[in-house]
């Protein structure tokens, strides 16, 4: 396993956002984390990425304990992430944004430039490389975040709602990009609340609810799981109908 999380718990004051979560991410897979709003998936994701230090539990990445390490150490070890709301360096050009990521593995400016150009080409941003990053719209900024993360040459890419807020065509383009990145051998963990996206992308899906994992498996298995349906839709229609019948009878 590339990532092994055991008993990961995150408390904010008296509130337990993530409660003793175990999760394995296999190398070379696309793992989806889903769940209703407030399920704890983003909090867990932030623990994986190093933005949060878990209150308890262990996270091993390529056999190494990483829980509590700084975000910059995570990046150095080969974990890159994007943010739900893009943190674009708006004062810099699109190309220079990607350069910042490329400098992690390439000290010299010329080498970083070359690496960044390759990433820009691959992510379809080469045409806008010289534009100011502030000129990009939401879809462009999300793409730029992925490019910047890729430039750090990660083993695993953590995508936090990389497709939220995009139009249908933009979503298709983004899915193509994620597939392409995956084919190049990078393991992907994606948090998403658009079901269709996860179902078409992920090999394995983990469903969060109230800070715990309620279901794991292939997309097919998970969507067939009554617990998942209940978490998303509340009580199932069938049971509601039964209740109604009992009440009137």
């Amino acid at each position: 396993m590339l990532i092994e999380a055991r008993g990961v718990t995150m408390r904010f004051g008296g509130f337990t956002a993530v409660d003793a979560v175990d999760l394995d991410v296999a190398e070379g897979r696309i793992t989806g984390l889903i769940g209703p709003n407030g399920a704890g998936k983003s909090t867990f994701f932030n623990c994986l990425a190093g933005d949060y230090r878990p209150s308890a539990g262990s996270i091993r990445f390529a056999g190494r304990e990483i829980a509590g390490l700084t975000p910059e150490s995570h990046a150095r070890l080969g974990m890159a992430r994007t943010y739900q709301v893009p943190h674009t360096f708006t004062d810099m050009s699109v190309g220079d944004n990607v350069m910042v990521g490329a400098f992690l593995r390439h000290r010299r400016t010329a080498d970083a430039r070359r690496a960044a150009d390759a990433v820009l080409e691959r992510t379809g941003l080469a045409g806008q490389a010289r534009h100011r990053a502030s000129s990009l719209g939401t879809a462009g900024r999300k793409r730029l975040e992925i490019a910047r993360a890729l430039a750090t040459e990660p083993k695993v890419l953590l995508l936090d709602e990389a497709l939220a807020g995009l139009t249908a065509t933009e979503i298709q383009a983004a899915i193509t990009l994620v597939r392409d990145i995956h084919r190049s051998g990078i393991t992907i963990v994606i948090v998403e609340h658009i079901m269709e996206v996860i179902l078409s992308l992920a090999d394995r899906v983990t469903v969060f609810h109230h800070g715990r994992i309620i279901s794991q498996g292939t997309p097919g298995e998970v969507t067939g799981d009554p617990k998942v349906v209940e978490a998303y839709l509340g009580r199932s229609l069938e049971r509601q109908r039964q209740r109604a019948a009992e009440a009137s009878g």
Binding site: G50, D51, P71, R76, A80, Y83, T88, M92, L104
Partner: peptide, 10 residues
Amino acid sequence: GSERAARSLG
């Protein structure tokens, strides 16, 4: 630009 993003890029 963003300290948080800077850290995430190492």
